[in-house]
Design a protein around this nucleic acid. Sequence first.
DNA 1: GTGGTCTAGACCACA
DNA 2: GTGGTCTAGACCACA
Lengths: 135, 135, 135, 135
Amino acid sequence: MWLRIKPGSTVPVYQQIVSGVKESIAKGALHAGDRLPTVRDTATEFALNHNTVAKAYRALERDGVIVTMGSKGTFIAHIHEVQNRSEKIENLKRSMDTLFIDAHHAGITPEQLKQMFILAVDTWFAAKDPKENLK
Amino acid sequence: MWLRIKPGSTVPVYQQIVSGVKESIAKGALHAGDRLPTVRDTATEFALNHNTVAKAYRALERDGVIVTMGSKGTFIAHIHEVQNRSEKIENLKRSMDTLFIDAHHAGITPEQLKQMFILAVDTWFAAKDPKENLK
Amino acid sequence: MWLRIKPGSTVPVYQQIVSGVKESIAKGALHAGDRLPTVRDTATEFALNHNTVAKAYRALERDGVIVTMGSKGTFIAHIHEVQNRSEKIENLKRSMDTLFIDAHHAGITPEQLKQMFILAVDTWFAAKDPKENLK
Amino acid sequence: MWLRIKPGSTVPVYQQIVSGVKESIAKGALHAGDRLPTVRDTATEFALNHNTVAKAYRALERDGVIVTMGSKGTFIAHIHEVQNRSEKIENLKRSMDTLFIDAHHAGITPEQLKQMFILAVDTWFAAKDPKENLK
DNA sequence: GTGGTCTAGACCACA
DNA sequence: GTGGTCTAGACCACA
């Protein structure tokens, strides 16, 4: 299953699709060049409206994650073609700042936070599809 | 100025208040035991709807960041009295996962990410109010 | 009338709205800071679906032409805040190239084209709201 | 290579063919009287659907750019035999109007626009095949 | 009251 | 067969 939707969540469905696809790519479950199911097929598979799926695909295309080839279908983009790299790194830094604030309010010290982070990075990337790691 | 609101932002105003108060505490600009302005004073000061401010205060109280003492006003809670610590750490880990996915799509390697993070932690906590660091 | 929709046109309605608003601003009929009618009011006025109008407003916001202020409504952005300037100039040059090709196929020489263009620029900008020209 | 198709472009393929042929003629790479490859040969050469190529040829013929001579094949029309000249000039003026609006939204003044245009015309026509200029 | 999200269902352009 | 556009109508978050 390349996607999992929580119907009751406060997170809009189309955003769950966007996050899910990004996560599957990052984890190596989807690869550059792979063809995604059509908008309509995805809608049917997860019992969603096709407009909702189309909105998610449009957002993913705007982010440079997927590429729509007219009537040929939709494909995972190559990571080299990263769009707005500097903008994305800015967003990343802002997310880190938020993380620090939340850590402080959870009663975590900077040193504990560093250790947690390094452990989490290693665990996370180790969980990736091994084939992906060989590249 | 203990709070700064960006009117044009896509982030809801009430969430900006929540984040702003948390940030001010983490940076040492607000301290445990400090009295916050009333909902209506804050609303007037920043030209906001008082329902918006009330919603933010309610969210902060739910998070254990502030405490409402009936007619005495609203106060910054002591950090030791952290509520739902394990729940917060869970949220933190989830935020980290999202960070990893975003980093991957920005073309950043795990090693680069670790270095960025450690540097950012050190920079961030060095910028804190020195008084806070003495504690 | 700040907008005119041709129902039978092959140009999608939402694009007609986008072009119409841009044109009204360029001609000086709409000014920076003006409040646009709400999505629903515009939909009612021109007998359109509110989703169609919302799509047009979203496109205009992405282009930095208008700014949505949450529940305060939608406003014409200040031209100084031009987004993606270099990208827009690239598009402009590409439009010029297309113009040259079309001119050639209409049997127009480069010199005739220059004269037509200068005349058209002068005529077009003279037709603007005089108040706008005083600024 | 008399034609170049971008598969990932948002511009429909058949329009890319129409523009490409017009551009090649305007640049002097294709000349009046030249025989174009058949619909099926073009489709094979560029790995396109033959319906797509046929649609493009139909559009070019409607514009008077090419002429189909029954079983003899398809030929580039003579420019003197311009069809619908006044209609084409009307379209040209409309394209100019759009250009003015886009220029305004890119923060370009009328004078800057004139200079850009004259420079672009000179550059563009200088790049033409020299043989064409001798005519 | 404002815009955002979502569904259901129709029609169209492109390949 | 593919995605894009549009309508009609419902419900929700925010201010």
